[in-house]
């Protein structure tokens, strides 16, 4: 009995997800250039938010320096493409491998020497800042002047991953869909179970045979690799990369705001959160410019964060789910009060 109800809710959940993304595809076909480019950024940060969410929401490891991995991805794609004409597909792959390696080394060293929790998070910031300064002083990659892509020659060139704004919208949409589905799948896989166990109680998980050390290294590495893919595409979309923007603290914040606002550890949370927070950020930035109040966007970010933490500590998405009860909270397992226990 329980299993059929699981299957039914599985179908509902995946169906709901497919509907949302179908609707977003329609939006991409209809909207104007401004909306499209804004939503492209939202969707890219949904994807990168998923990578961050995997690490904290499921694996229990906090990073506030995800810009490091985003930047590695962006530079890998840009260097190969701009300097050597290599397709971004290769750059994305290489960037993911390098970032995955860097993430694994960072995690390995920290956890080996018992640097955990908030101290590990501080280390991620330090690493990101170190990389930003290093890239800024590195002439081969353009230093502070950055790297510029040539303008795309056609509306769609899938082989070179170049195209117009609408093309990138659909690339970002595909990534976001992969992120949501991937989170859902991973969360219900062997990895998902042992990661959530070590997130909830490291010592109890170890007592049940979970080799938490290697799993922490693994989750950080996978998170880093996927963030790098998002960063590679972000660089292409923006047409240029600079160390201060692509590896700056602001990127790390943009990456985590979606899942924090939307709902940590959930498959849909980062999408909902990015949809809410990033357009607000842009709108407040524009308003701030118009009113001569720079920093209004940061104040808005802070306000949203405080409001969410205060009123919806689990994030927006779980609150919606609880309200409607039809869809389950995906990555955190069933919400039993909404569900009859059948025997």
């Amino acid at each position: 009995m329980q299993r059929t109800s699981d299957q039914a809710s599985d179908i509902k959940r995946w169906g709901a997800g497919a509907l949302v993304f179908a609707a977003l595809a329609v939006v991409g076909g209809m909207s104007n250039a401004y909306v499209i480019s804004l939503l492209t950024i939202v969707l890219l940060f949904t994807f990168m938010g998923q990578s961050w969410n995997l690490m904290l929401g499921i694996g229990g490891q906090l990073s506030i320096g995800h810009a490091l991995f985003v930047g590695i991805g962006a530079y890998a794609v840009a260097i190969l493409n701009i300097k050597y004409g290599v397709t971004p597909w290769i750059g994305l792959l290489l960037g993911a491998v390098i970032a995955g390696f860097v993430g694994a080394v960072l995690a390995w060293l920290s956890f080996r020497f018992e640097v955990r929790g908030i101290y590990f998070a501080l280390l991620t910031i330090a690493a990101a800042e170190f990389a930003r300064i290093m890239f800024g002083g590195w002439d081969y990659v353009g230093g502070m002047q950055g790297l510029f892509y040539q303008a795309p020659s056609s509306a769609i060139d899938l082989g070179m991953l170049r195209g117009d704004a609408r093309f990138y919208y659909f690339v970002a949409l595909a990534l976001a869909a992969i992120g949501v589905a991937g989170t859902e799948l991973i969360s219900r896989s062997y990895w998902g179970y042992v990661w959530r166990a070590m997130r909830d109680d490291d010592e109890a998980a170890r007592a049940l045979g979970v080799r938490t050390f290697r799993h922490k290294v693994l989750v950080v590495s996978i998170s880093a690799a996927t963030a790098a893919i998002g960063g590679g595409v972000l660089g292409l979309v923006q047409g240029a990369i600079f160390p201060d923007s692509i590896m700056g603290m602001a990127i790390s914040v943009d990456v985590l705001i979606g899942p924090v606002v939307g709902g940590l550890g959930t498959a849909f949370g980062p999408l909902v959160g990015s949809m809410a927070a990033i357009p607000l950020h842009h709108a407040m930035g524009a308003l701030g410019d118009a009113l001569g109040l720079p920093g209004l966007n940061s104040v808005a970010y802070g306000a949203v964060l405080i409001l969410v933490v205060w009123f919806l500590p689990d994030g927006i998405w779980p609150s919606i789910v609880r309200l409607y009860g039809a869809i389950q909270l995906p990555a955190r397992g069933p919400i039993p009060q909404l569900r009859k226990v059948e025997e």
Partner: peptide
């Protein structure tokens, strides 16, 4: 007692099994 608080009862009981299988 140390339940994994954000996992269901069933999921809690599954964790230990992953010490000898990777099959969900």
């Amino acid at each position: 007692v140390r339940p994994m608080k954000d996992m269901s009862v069933l999921e809690n009981a599954m964790v230990g099994a992953f010490s000898w299988t990777t099959n969900v």
